[in-house]
Structures are given as structure tokens and as C-alpha cells.
Amino acid sequence: MDLLKLISDIEKVDPEVYERLNPRRRVFRHFGLAGKAVTAAMLPGLVSGIFQRAYGQTTALTPEIIAVLNLALSLEYLEFYFYDSGLKATIPTQLIPATDRPAFETIRNDESGHIKVLREVLGSAAIPDPTVSAFDYTGGRGVLPGPFATVFTDYKMFLGVAQSFVDTGVRAYKGGAPVLMPNKDILESALNIHSVEARHSSHVRTVRRAVEGGNPSNGTTLAGNLSNLNKIPKSWISGIDNGGPSPDTNPSTRPVYDRGNPEAMYPAESNTTQAGANIINTAAGITAVAASEAFDEPLDPTTVKSIARNFVKSTTNLFV
């Protein structure tokens, strides 16, 4: 048996084999082999054990990690069914125009992939699929006519709600990441989802500039408008974006961009102080707006849930 050839062959079908065999996954640590000689007689059992551990569940998840991942999974379901409903909305006409359908199909599929990843990590601890029936995307909690009642008939409204969801998601993953530090592979998976959510946010904001700014086919030709950030935002968050797409409704989008709790750990997106250092004027032209744009901010799970709870039926247990 040639172990190196075996690993090489496995790499052809699983490029992550080296990662799986990484000592940080404690694959090797379990065998107590540090500094010890390995005899030929030990090898068959050793090799099978290595692969069993590399490909099997090795560590139990803590309740804290499960809570963070299930909140993430809940948000992914919220987003998946939102984009899926938008893509299926055809009354009175197709909600999402042809130009933007590929983008929203990509976003919906990414969320579906994230659901798959989170389910695999959580295993039996994963919340069940709430299905689309759990959600009320009008913001009415299933009991009131919500302020976003036209979300699947008015494309501008759809885009505003989409921006709020995706920006909430970016802040939620950022806030949850430190809890995942004990498990480096889960942490990295969450980081790899977090940056994709930020890419989504950037694009949804670009599409909003396109649709609200009068060039529906390509938002990259339109500058963000600092005097009208509610409708014509940049692809990044300026200050608190003046409260986001719908600051004066109930529910409001302002909490998506505002301070969390405690504020010292979860400041508003308008924050211009990082690790105790002032960012404004550290170089020519770095205004408060630029300083806030350069850093996104995390949000605490309680605030995240209070935002998302507005978009599920009050009879469900999601985001409670």
C-alpha cells in the first residue's frame, strides 16, 4: 500500500483531502503519534482510522455554536424563499426583468447552497425547513397588512426588501463569527458564506441604483447619491444609509443599519472608530462617510432576530 498514492488519488476526486487530513482537525492528534515512531505493523489500523476521522464527524458542537448556525440557517431560509418567490412572481407581469433574472437565480442558488452547508454541519441539530408558508414578506407578521405589501408586484419594493435582508445577513454572520472560533473549519465555512452575502449586497445595491436611477439595464453606470441613499445607495454602506430603503415604516429598515446591543461591540454602520483608533482624516479625503464605508459592522443575534421576526408569521418559532 502506498499511502502517498492513495492520498493523491483521493485528491483527484476530493481536492480538499489535504484539508481534511490537516492536523488542526485533530485527525492525527487522536492517535497520540506526536514524536513517536510508527511501525509497519501499526499502519493498516492507523490509515483506516485517519480516513475515518478525516471524513467523519469528529467533534460535538457546543450549544453556542449550534445557536449561531441555526440563526444563520433561519436567515438563509428567509432569503431563499424570498428570492425564490420573487423569481416565481408573474402576476400581473414577471416581477424580475430578464436583465436581472440571472443575478437573482445566482443569489437564490447561493442561499440554497448555504442551507446545504449549514444543514451538513448541524446534522440532527438543524432546524427543520420552515417552508415558504412560515414567512410574511410584507412585514405584517401574518396578521397585519404589512408596509411592503407590494413586495412581489413592485420590483422597486422587492429590491428594497432584498437589500435589507442581505445587509442583515452580512452583519449577522460577522457578529456570529467569534463564537465559531473553537472550530476552525466551521469558522472558515461561515467566513466563506459571509463574503458571498456581501457580494450579493453589493449587487442588489447596484441594481437598485439601476432601477431607481433610470438605467435598468446596468447599475454600474450610475453613481450613488449621498443625498438620496434610501433609493440610490452605493454598493457599500455610507453612514447608516439614512436608515435604508424604508426608514419611516413599521417595521422600519433603520435597525438593519443602526447600532446593536451592546453598542460598544455592535456599533452602527456609521461607526468611524476601529479598535479605539479614529479613521476620519487619517489620510486626505477620508471623511466620516468614507471612514464608515471602509468598515462594515457586526450585529448581535438579538437585534438580528428582532429585525427578521417582522417577516415571519407570528405563529412560528423562527427568530424567537
Binding site: 456581501a198 471602509a294 457586526p298
Partner: peptide
């Protein structure tokens, strides 16, 4: 994390 999401927005 505060920086990487801004880089992702740029990208």
C-alpha cells in the same frame, strides 16, 4: 470581518 465584507462589495 469588518474589512473583508467591504472588499467583497468592491470585488
Amino acid at each position: 470581518g469588518k474589512i473583508v465584507s467591504v472588499e467583497a462589495r468592491h470585488a
